[in-house]
Design a protein around this nucleic acid. Structure first.
Lengths: 256, 256
DNA sequence: CGGTTCTCACCTAGGTGTTAAACT
DNA sequence: AGTTTAACACCTAGGTGAGAACCG
């Protein structure tokens, strides 16, 4: 029915080679570049900055090693009607913050491309399954501890563990609404406001002094059920809440 | 050893009569008065206001009925080294907030008098057991959702469920430090700042525009173990986390 | 058949009073 | 003897993937 074509280079970076890619993958992946990939990629996933002072502020992705592991397999994130946390969690630290201003840290999730995907179990690979469904307008999730003083921004790990992904377009709890079987890129935004500025919420980035950081290793496919069994296994082995499904626990018949 | 005298009128209001006291006890107990009681009472427990605009803002104690039940028996709050929540929780609502300002809501706990108490089990009553131990400086606990917009202040129930009481004088987590076997009065402070004002923490109320609300029914004695068994029973029956100790659960032998 | 939803057992995380032991 | 501590069983609250049921 839909135009279905095999994906040449695995879209999410399925296991292809043990070699690190050309660019030194140990270095920073944020800020200045690394949008990379194909012509169909969304310009939204490029870093951006409309404020000189923010050029001095670096953003670092914590638990990058874990993100890399998932990314090598092609990260999947469950979305549900009631909302599901992300795992791994987006955790960042900042350096270079100035004094006498306030910082807001935000997360949003934008489409990587305009495609719909499906997973070929027998081949263990993702296929393009047609054009994207109409996307819900991207919601900005402001980190609940915002605003941060420069001191806080320098010292704290800012963790988006509470943010939830949903496929419920009618959601009214401020969760991030995504389409299943579509690929997404999380983005971190740093907004700078004068300390005199009010607590009014941030609704439009373009009306703020901001800088956008993009970590390509956090790309994922939204799913309602895991497709790649290796992803399931890695989640179970690394997410404490899934401990009950670990291999050692599954030897239950033998144990008892 | 210490001068030990019986307490004439039960200090925390032990069960004396089923009659409601003279003043209509259904009415508001905050704001303007009701410091009441004896000559030894701490002047800190009187309401206070250094800001005209705040005279218009009313504060209402939620779950007053529960507080009253405890107060009739003589409320006790456990303090531990690691910190213990208060139960009941101090929950308040405000009305009359103006726009274009920001409100901070704070809690502190001040000594009611300069006495140390002990509990006479055989008589089921509190006795004065000498002079107070030197108090730790009262810590201001700023509600974590502060600052509030006038809108938020009008609509939200502000709950201090997360605040913890400790007897650890070396505490560095910002918990409220108390002496065991001493009597205390929680106070709620409302601080008004211009929306242009910064997020710097509030360290000295006197340097702010503020109003202090006092709810006498929230007086309690800090203890490391419950003294009055009726208090224990009421806690078990009303705190969801103590459900495991409810009578119906204790019929276990019969049930199984 | 592919995709979604719901319920479930099994976890994490942490708030309760109890109890026995330790402290002073 | 009065008070404090620490380990414990028992809760609340909620995050996991499995698997069956359901949908289209």
């Amino acid at each position: 029915m839909v135009d279905e074509e095999d994906v040449g280079g695995p879209p999410v970076g399925a296991v292809k080679s043990k070699k690190k890619s050309g660019k030194k993958s140990g270095g920073k992946s944020s800020g200045s570049g690394s949008s990379g990939s194909s012509s169909s990629s969304n310009p939204q996933i490029k870093p951006k900055c409309n404020c000189e002072q923010l050029q001095l502020v670096d953003c670092h992705l914590e638990t990058k090693e874990l993100w890399d592991k998932f990314n090598e397999l092609g990260t999947e994130m469950i979305i549900t009607k009631t909302g599901r946390r992300m795992f791994p969690t987006v955790r960042v630290t900042f350096s270079g913050a100035q004094s006498r201003v306030r910082y807001y840290v935000l997360l949003d999730v934008v489409p990587v491309d305009s495609k719909r995907y499906r997973y070929a179990y027998h081949r263990s690979s993702w296929l393009v399954a047609g054009k994207a469904d109409p996307p819900a307008p991207a919601r900005l999730y402001t980190h609940p501890d915002s605003p941060f003083t420069p001191d806080q921004l320098r010292k704290q790990v800012i963790s988006f563990e509470k943010v939830k992904l949903t496929n419920n377009e009618m959601d009214k709890q401020g969760q991030i609404v995504l389409n299943s079987m579509h690929r997404y890129q999380p983005r971190v935004h740093l907004v700078r406001r004068m300390e005199g500025d009010t607590t009014r919420p941030i609704v439009d980035l373009e009306r703020e002094q901001f800088r956008t950081y993009v970590f390509p290793e956090t790309v994922f496919t939204a799913v309602t059920a895991y497709q790649n069994q290796l992803i399931t296994k890695l989640k179970i082995d690394s997410n404490p809440f899934a401990k009950g499904f670990r291999d050692s626990s599954r030897l239950s018949d033998f144990d008892r």
